[in-house]
Amino acid sequence: MSLLSQAFRPVGSNRVDPMLVALWLALVVLALVWITPFIFIVFTALKSSDAVMNTSAFALPTEPDFGNFVSAWQRGNFSTTAFNGVIITFIKVPLGLFISAMAAYALAKVPMRFSKVFLALCVFGTMLPFQVMLAPIFKQVNAFGLINTYPGIILPYLAFGVPYQVFILHGFFAAVPKELSEAARIDGASHFTIFRRIFLPVSLPVLSALLILDFVATWNEFAMALVILQDPKMWTLPLGLMNFQSQFQSNYGELNAAIIMTVLPAAIVYLMFQRYFVAGLTTGAVKE
């Protein structure tokens, strides 16, 4: 009771507010609706094909069957797609953040001609939907002979990830007090040193938020990968799932097992880091 004793009281009041109780009930109901698809997916993944067709959607799987996961893993070539996802994400995300941070620092703290132009170009880029230009991107990657390669997918990912990250980090760096860097400049430190010694450390919260955001986005990306990774050996998890769906649509248990295996890594990463994520997003995107 002690935990709840503070609940339902509006700011600056000591009485339980009935409006808040009603609101809370509505929230719980809505949350149940929101979580229903997950329950349905897990239940189906644990059922055999016959059980799916002959029992109700919310019937508990009476004999949980993990065979679906095993066979979906093999049929969907998950070991390949997961490996590719790891390679692509683990190279792209840190590399992208690093070059974005460098660029953001240069735009925010180094007096340069055209820096306003570059920044405008960058903001423009944050709003440029690459889904619109899949064919020319494909053509460009192909011109470099990089179709079906890791660099071939990482380079466009970088190109379309950089603007947003530069934009956010620029806003953050610009707000860092001048005195902090001026002192170092007078001591004769180069911009490289100031960036590394002063700005990278203070931006760690923002960087970690961007890291998670970018990890999830890269891990889940579909349209660009669809165009550039044509070779099944190079596919990422979303491509693998799409192929699985079009091939084994009617094998409901395995399909749902495949969904769970595709979704789980990003969910785990998010749940592990969500504290930093929310904090970072707050400082970076909206408030500062």
């Binding site: 390679i87 190279i91 840190p94 390669t149 660099p151 990482i154």
Partner: peptide, 25 residues
Amino acid sequence: MRFKKMAATAASALTLAAILAGGAV
């Protein structure tokens, strides 16, 4: 030098990607 180390990591990551890409043929 952390900067150098980071740059080196990035460079080696790119090289790794290039090797992985080219090795198949």
